[in-house]
């Protein structure tokens, strides 16, 4: 177990290094915050001054070194726009995004795994086709469109749910449905495929030969083997969601990380973008690690080798 953790830790460091340098370079190639900060009508001298003030005139390696050494000590700089420490900004916005991501992935799994199981139990029947159709629609329909439909029906006409903000749990219902629906098709089809394969296997026949009741065969013997790949994909999807969904957060006016990232990119707010992207990379590494641990628990073959 320890070598496994150490290897993952080493991998995390490599990922952090690659992600941070790439972001750093791309940002500086793409935008000039000094220009944006100085505003319209600023003289060339003004812009030069701002550049010198923020250190943007230094050579890139020196800038990166300065950023990296500060980042090592936990100082990710200040937002040049909002004038507050980047970590504080992320800390303020993270709870909204985390709430949304967790609600969405739980909803997605709660719907797609049973649906996938049912589809696998009755392949090529109406139920299977219905599940497949739902999945295709989910994959094809853009989130913003689905979000607008929900707002129109449940927010405007029925007035059941609030349409913007993040004050109560009710505010998270529609965003979670939209984001969860987006994640559902892949999970459902993986569950269906996995179950179909497992249900045809020899050990399921053995379980039935022992006289075990159908629910035991289904849940104890089949599902556990079928969800291994589902767990891995769900972890990646959760990582994606924790990075914040720009579209969903914007439509429902949720002040989460997605919106922060989007706004920071528009403002060329270098340090904020840098920190958010690094954080997303970190979350990915952490989640794939957790998924591996969970899979090792589900499938003992992984545990030993």
């Amino acid at each position: 177990m320890l070598p496994f953790v150490l290897r993952r830790l080493g991998l995390a460091v490599v990922v952090a290094l690659l992600v941070s340098t790439t972001t750093f370079l791309l940002l500086r190639l793409a935008a000039d915050p000094a220009q944006a900060l100085a505003g319209e009508g600023a003289t060339v001298a003004d812009i030069e001054n701002i550049r010198r003030m923020y250190g943007f005139d230094q050579p890139l390696p020196a800038q990166y070194w300065a950023w990296a050494t500060r980042a090592m000590t936990g100082d990710f700089g200040d937002s040049i726009y909002l004038k507050s420490p980047v970590l504080e900004l992320i800390g303020d916005r993270a709870p909204v995004t985390i709430t949304l991501a967790l609600c969405s992935i739980i909803l997605a799994m709660a719907v797609s795994i049973p649906l996938g199981v049912v589809a696998a139990l009755r392949p090529n029947t109406f139920l299977d086709r219905f599940a497949l159709g739902t999945a295709v629609v989910g994959q094809a329909m853009p989130s913003f469109f689905f979000a607008l439909l929900l707002i129109l029906v449940f927010g405007v006409h029925l007035e059941w749910l609030p349409i913007s903000g993040s004050d109560s749990w009710l505010h998270f219902v529609m965003p979670s449905i939209v984001l969860g629906y987006y994640a559902m098709p892949a999970l459902m089809r993986l569950t269906r495929g996995g179950m179909l394969e497992v249900l045809g296997s020899d050990y399921i026949r053995t379980a039935r030969a022992k006289g075990l009741r159908p629910p035991v065969v289904l849940f104890k013997h089949a599902l556990r083997n079928a969800v291994v790949s589902v767990v891995a994909v769900a972890a990646v999807q959760l990582g994606f969601m924790l990075g914040g969904s720009v579209v969903v957060e914007s439509i429902f006016s949720l002040n989460g990380l997605g919106r922060l990232a989007y706004q920071s990119i528009q403002r060329a707010d270098f340090d904020t973008i840098q920190a958010i992207i690094l954080m997303i990379a970190g979350v990915y590494v952490l989640l794939t690690f957790l998924a591996d641990v969970l899979n090792a628990w589900l499938d003992p073959r992984i545990r030993v080798s």
Partner: peptide, 24 residues
């Protein structure tokens, strides 16, 4: 299913795949 496993039991051809890999 009451009879299976209790009054009659079966042994299969493929021992490699006839046991569930996820349970001891």
């Amino acid at each position: 299913s009451d009879i299976r496993g209790q009054r009659m039991a079966m042994i299969f051809q493929e021992p490699m795949t006839s046991l569930n890999p996820a349970w001891s």
